[in-house]
Design a protein around this nucleic acid. Structure first.
Lengths: 230, 230
DNA sequence: CCTACCGATCGGTAGG
DNA sequence: CCTACCGATCGGTAGG
């Protein structure tokens, strides 16, 4: 059923408050290593900068309209030069999407791990998820907007992971319904409704905003009757 | 401040439960028809069919990747033929976006008009908005996903209209806070949180779904403590 | 990591 | 409303 527990767990450990693209990209850095410099870190750093630049360009203009030339300019390279660091334009999107996918599960696991009390778990998930979106708004925007430009295989995998995500949140929702903290209703719809609040933020949140992620998450929690409401 | 009351009001009258792009869906598949007909309706019907096809293609592949050839195929025309009905590919997106913009305000006005009681007004907005998204899922998807492909002028106008939308819902939220139906907190964030539930639906709602728009909207309302909850 | 450049795609027009 | 086709853009490679 679930293909990601391993991925999610390791992601949760690796990235504590870091951008999903600057953490650890995995054993992908092997392969070419053509130049004289034997320092793999140098190459890997540039690679991450390119991924960041790609996220910025794709967020601004979309995957198809965003050109490799723009991405290269974002990091001070010529357009053909980025092919020394990544295999193709499509790879850039794929890596961004898979990193967000892992980051979502990291938020889920981390939120659940806070407590055994379902109300505190749901609050934890909402807070961690909100923090993740605030931290990497552009990357999440690319993830949610450019899905149809991904290879079908990756689309399928992400879709399946999303289902798992909803299922797991749904189980917590069901417990909260039994204890009358949440009203009755189909758990899948209710889980999606709750998660849509942080998800939707990439449409409106601005980094210059005055509120912190925690404060915003608290509004979401009170709205659904979690915590010391009224 | 608000540039749309007129547009919204007329849109509310025109479309009662119909797709914003096809006020008339009748015998659109009329085949060819000889060139003799001087009937402007014939031309307009084809034009609407092209807009529907464009929405389908853009929803599936995005604005830039979706080609005019695909759109033409969707309605059984050759690629150059669609330029007899629309000025440019960009026009297709512009018309789709402006129609959704109007439809959003129609839902707002229609929901508010249901009552003078703010709780009923908010429920009305949620129900109308949910119904609109369910009715035209693909068109809303294009609206929210392909915004960056719109001409800057249109982007600005939509952004302003969105602000108005939030402001108006925020006023109802504020009244509900005063009467303790909703918890305290920044009205703009709370309004966005509430609206994100129907907005987000274009990511997950499937037309084969078992629930009606009204039932889903009811889940949203109960979740935020509206109605006969508990 | 750069300059040159190829191959393919695609929006839009010509001209009937 | 079609066949042909132009002009421009862009991803990726060659070859240093």
């Amino acid at each position: 059923m679930s293909t990601h527990p391993g991925r999610a767990a390791s992601a949760a450990k690796q990235q504590r408050g870091k951008s999903p693209l600057t953490a650890e990209t995995g054993p992908a850095s092997s392969g070419d290593s053509g130049g004289a410099s034997a320092d793999i870190t140098e190459h890997e750093l540039k690679r991450r900068a390119i991924l960041e630049g790609a996220a910025a360009v794709f967020a601004r203009r979309g995957f198809v309209a965003g050109t490799t030339k723009e991405i290269a300019a974002e990091v001070g390279l010529s357009q053909p030069a980025i092919y020394h660091y990544v295999g193709s334009k499509s790879d850039l999107l794929r890596e961004i999407a898979l990193q967000v996918d892992r980051d979502l599960f990291a938020a889920l696991e981390s939120g659940i791990a806070r407590s055994t009390n379902p109300a505190e778990q749901l609050r934890g998930i909402i807070e961690e998820y909100t923090a993740a979106v605030v931290r990497d708004r552009r990357v999440f925007a690319v993830f949610w907007q450019e899905g149809h430009s991904l290879p079908q295989e990756i689309q399928d995998r992400i879709r399946e992971d999303q289902r798992d995500f909803i299922t797991r949140v749904g189980k917590i929702v069901a417990r909260l319904q039994r204890s009358k903290v949440l009203p009755p209703g189909p758990v899948a719809v209710m889980a999606r409704a709750i998660l849509s609040m942080p998800s939707w933020m990439y449409h409106w949140y601005l980094p210059e905003g005055q509120m912190t992620a925690t404060e915003i998450a608290d509004v979401y929690c009170r709205l659904i009757g979690l915590g010391e409401r009224r």
